[in-house]
Each structure stands twice: as C-alpha cells, then as structure tokens.
C-alpha cells in the first residue's frame, strides 16, 4: 500500500469550447516527493489542479489521489490534502481568526499549536476583517489554514504570488519542514528559483502538455548558459569556440550562449584581458525555448 502514488493521472484532458486546456496528462507523484509544476501563464497549471481537486470534470482521462478517484471519492481525498489557491477568495466580513476557525472545522483536522505558531511566523493579524487585508495577507490566511491541517498532500498554486520576500522565505522553510515530516507537496509556480530551492522533481507544462518531467539539474543540462564578458579592449570573435552556440559582440562586450563544458571557452578567455565575467543560468523562458523549440512560442493562449 505504501507504494500507492499520491497523485496519478492517466490521459487526463480538459477542453473548453474548442481549446485544449490540458492534453493527455500522465503524472505520477510518489509519497514524500516535492514536485514543482512549472509553466507560463495559461499553460494549464491551474486546470490540472482544479481537475485533481474535482472542482472541474475531465473531458477524458482519470485522476487518482491516494489511489482514490478524484471525483467519486472527493471528500475522502480532500480530508488528506490541503489546497492553496493563487487568488484566494474569502468572505470579506469574516475576520482572519474566523476564517481560520471555519476552514479548520470544515477540514476536520487542525493542529492548533502549529497554527498559532504559523500566525506568529507569518506575522498575520487575525483580528482584522478579510476585506481589510491586502492580497498577501489573504494569501497568508489560506497558507496557514492549509499548513496547520498537516495534510498528507499540499497542493499549492502559485502560493507566493502576493507575499513579500521575507514571507516567501518563511513559506519556503515551512515547505521544507513539511517535506522533512514526509508530506507530499505539489507546487505550481512560474518562479524557477522557488522550484529550484524546494523541489526534487520538476514537471514542465506548455500549452496544456507536459513536455518534460525530471530533476531540474537534468533539465538544465539540456539548456544553454548565458555568459556575458567585458574586455579591456575590443571583444574577440568567440563564435568558433567549442560549446559556444552563438556569440554577439558589441564593442568591448560579448554575450554568449554556451552549452556543455565551459572549459574550451575559459581556455580562450584566459589569453584575453577580461575585465568582468558573468554567467547566468537559463531563465524559465530560455529553458522552455530549449525544451520546446519555438513551437507555440508565437501563439500565446488564454486560459
């Protein structure tokens, strides 16, 4: 039984009026894993999550959580998970404390000591009414409610969208604690750094299709690194160096795309008068371009 995947989808698809929001998703998440779910806006991240939660119905395919059907056994499934939406909508006339109480009651299980601790850590003022909260504060209420129920599975949809860097950091340590306790985490995000800091596995979604699933390091390997070099004199021509995919020189400055080993480039640069050398990991966009070519890049979709 312990081998039952926490999340398993088979051919999960959703079509809205002729547009494919999600196509044939086969996803498997093992217990205790922290999985990042990456993709640009409208890629189908939220659609996937709403399908997993049974809030919408698949056009075809199935989703199972803890080995149970996400639609038939929705309540049994929901008792073991907690969901944080990226656009939390709460009741404007209820205070933070009232919402936390209600959500705990509706969930059925809540660790009150941990909840009070989280309220302190996220510096939330629970006596305020929801309508007086900023978006970040509403997000904190939902996050605290979710974490305090200590669920087997946390489903987080862009949970740090409204949080300031300090609180985003606090959030990360909470997720790492959850991971330490063996909880499974499904984190949808478009922030590469967040996913990088937290996740073992990464799925990349584009135009409703899962185009890559694996570790981030393995994925990085596929992609080029951007290297920016400033010289004391004019920039030499570096386009012929091994591993350099493309090079553009602009006076004393050169910008390069490098894949694979850096060694040949460093050998060449050692002979030049380098003033400054900066290398940058591929951005999410660049990663996508590598993973997916240019296909679809010119057809932004809504949803």
């Amino acid at each position: 039984m312990t081998d039952t995947p926490v999340i398993r989808t088979r051919g999960l698809s959703k079509r809205y009026r002729g547009t494919d929001a999600l196509v044939d998703l086969d996803l498997e998440v093992a217990p205790g894993e922290v999985v990042g779910y990456l993709g640009p806006n409208g890629a189908g991240k939220t659609t996937t999550i709403r399908l997993l939660l049974g809030l919408i119905r698949p056009t075809s395919g199935t989703a199972q959580l803890f080995g149970l059907d996400s639609l038939q056994d929705a309540v049994a499934v929901h008792r073991r998970l907690a969901y944080v939406s990226g656009e939390p909508a709460l009741w404007p006339n209820l205070t933070g404390a009232e919402v936390l109480h209600l959500l705990g009651q509706v969930q059925g299980s809540v660790d009150l000591v941990y909840r009070d601790d989280l309220v302190d850590r996220f510096a939330l003022d629970p006596s305020k009414k929801v309508r007086a909260y900023s978006k970040g504060n509403r997000q904190k209420v939902v996050l605290i409610a979710a974490l305090a129920s200590r669920p087997d599975l946390l489903i987080l949809d862009e949970p740090t969208a409204g949080l300031d860097p300090l609180m985003a950091h606090e959030f990360r340590s909470c997720v790492l604690e959850a991971k330490g306790r063996g909880q499974t985490v499904f984190l949808s995000s478009h922030l590469l750094s967040e996913v990088e800091a937290l996740c073992d596995q990464v799925g990349v979604l584009r135009d409703g299709r899962l185009i890559e699933m694996g570790t981030l390091a393995a994925m990085r390997h596929l992609s080029a690194v951007t290297v920016e070099v400033s010289f004391d004199g004019d920039a030499p021509d570096l386009s012929a160096v091994d591993g350099v995919l493309s090079a553009t020189a602009n006076g004393r400055h050169a910008s390069l795309q490098v894949r694979g080993s850096m060694d040949p480039l460093l050998q060449v640069l050692a002979g030049s008068h380098v003033r400054q050398l900066r290398s940058r990991d591929p951005s999410l966009d660049e990663l996508f371009l590598t993973l997916y070519g240019d296909v679809g890049a010119t057809s932004p979709r809504a949803g």
Binding site: L53, L55, P88
Partner: peptide, 13 residues
C-alpha cells in the same frame, strides 16, 4: 467570486 473553492476543496461535498 471563487469563495466555493476553499470549501469544496475540503471535506464538503
């Protein structure tokens, strides 16, 4: 307004 989500994603049918 999306206020059903926090209820229906919990133990409420």
């Amino acid at each position: 307004e999306g206020r059903l989500d926090p209820l229906l994603s919990r133990a409420v049918t």
